[in-house]
């Protein structure tokens, strides 16, 4: 399949690859997908006291569209409040990357990853034990 230029560009030079310590109180970690399906995304956000996402990192096992979707959302969530980040829809990602229909699930996974990371952060803030297990499946 031919890739769109945005996907190629991001895959050549993905942004925000890496990891934060999972146990840190200001870090939310979302892991979505499954290896058997060929896609696993781990998205991490670092949230300030003002509920603004200061930084984001990802690691993704998946095709070019999955990598590009994850890289894109790490860029998008930075500087946004939690509520603004929750408003990101997979359609926005798919449109930005010009994903063909067969790759739209990659953008769905990226939206799920944001939500899972925010959920994890909220749980920590609420005083629950930090989690290392994946949260949400598509």
């Amino acid at each position: 399949m031919e890739y769109g230029s945005r996907v190629l560009e991001i895959c050549e030079n993905p942004k925000n690859v890496g990891a934060f310590p999972k146990s840190a109180a200001d870090v939310g970690t979302g892991v979505v997908g499954a290896p058997a399906c060929g896609d696993v995304m781990k998205l991490q956000i670092k949230v300030g006291d003002d509920h603004v996402i200061e930084d984001a990192k990802f690691k993704t096992f998946g095709c070019g569209s999955a990598i590009a979707s994850s890289s894109l959302v790490t860029e998008w969530v930075k500087g946004k409040t939690i509520d603004q980040a929750l408003a990101i829809r997979n359609v926005d990602i798919a449109t930005e990357l010009a994903l063909p229909p067969i790759k739209v699930h990659c953008s769905v996974l990226a939206e799920d990853a944001i939500k899972a990371a925010i959920f994890d952060h909220r749980r920590k803030q609420a005083g629950a034990a930090p989690t290392t297990a994946p949260e949400v499946a598509p």
């Binding site: 499954a34 399906c37 696993v40 499946a137």
Partner: peptide
């Protein structure tokens, strides 16, 4: 392989 991944 030991992780309980969600169903697709």
């Amino acid at each position: 392989a030991s992780v309980a991944w969600g169903a697709p």
